[in-house]
Design a protein around this nucleic acid. Sequence first.
DNA 1: TTGATTGCAAAGCATTTGCATGCTA
DNA 2: TAGCATGCAAATGCTTTGCAATCAA
Lengths: 167, 167
Amino acid sequence: MTEEQEVFHQHIQRAGLKRTAQRDLILEVFLRTEEHLSSEDLYRLVQREDPAIGQTTVYRTLKLLTDAGLAREVRFGDGRTRYEHNYKHPHHDHMICTECGKTIEFFSADLEKLQDKIAARHKFEITNHTLRMFGYCADCRSKDARRDRESSAAEPRVRFASAPGTS
Amino acid sequence: MTEEQEVFHQHIQRAGLKRTAQRDLILEVFLRTEEHLSSEDLYRLVQREDPAIGQTTVYRTLKLLTDAGLAREVRFGDGRTRYEHNYKHPHHDHMICTECGKTIEFFSADLEKLQDKIAARHKFEITNHTLRMFGYCADCRSKDARRDRESSAAEPRVRFASAPGTS
DNA sequence: TTGATTGCAAAGCATTTGCATGCTA
DNA sequence: TAGCATGCAAATGCTTTGCAATCAA
């Protein structure tokens, strides 16, 4: 039994809930992936191992995992909620490539400190925050540069006028 | 005619669209408010002046205003898209009070610089970003403190374990 | 005149809820 | 056994789309 599974079962007991095969499977599959999964994504993966499982159960279990501190909601602006690991996976922010969809996680102590300073100026007490930077990752930038060169276009290829999903 | 209205009409002409009474009214009402309005909010306000106007038209016009550079979408995690002024209203970020819903706009050049530095480290090209800090505004903090004192509770009042809508 | 615009109703999505059945503790 | 959990279908809330009628250019 992994640490995460122990945390989960403790949470279930403390809350007077029940351990079920579905919940165990959903947690297991969730732990196996390192992506930012939507409920739908996870549902598909879980279905491969138990086709009888319902979409609703995945939704409900993801909420449960969040309550247990094992998952954390993240939204990148495409309208669907995604989940990332939260257990022993400290706070960080995201860069989201609007071309290929890749996300880069990063943490900067300086950034956190600066935010605290700004909040203090406004007598604001931060409980949490989200910083999302939208743009182009290194791969897409070099691909774009290559494409521009090869097409020898007079003017560079037009990119999204405004990044979609700046939610 | 305000500058914003000129921008709007220019955008409409350039795009081969048409000027209508509904669009003019929606823009006018939008400009009169300084809030972060949802489509629904704006619809209600507009209806007071022209009850015949449809919800759909407001949705569509808000998109149009965004394309014209007059409005900007913001999302605070309550599931609905809000719009703020974008014309000569430079980039800024938000602090959102999870108790009273108030938002504080702020801008920090240091913060922007630091973000650029971090992005550069990852060879990431930022097109735009959103930083949202959730927590308690000055008013709510002092109200809470007063309440705690008056109720003379042994332990301070429990607040949201995790801020809702960290979308 | 012609194609864009409007408003209604219907459709779309992601997510939630009601409920009868099934299963843990 | 009691009450939580499950899965289906239906409902929800926000937003978009189809379409016939209307209107600006």
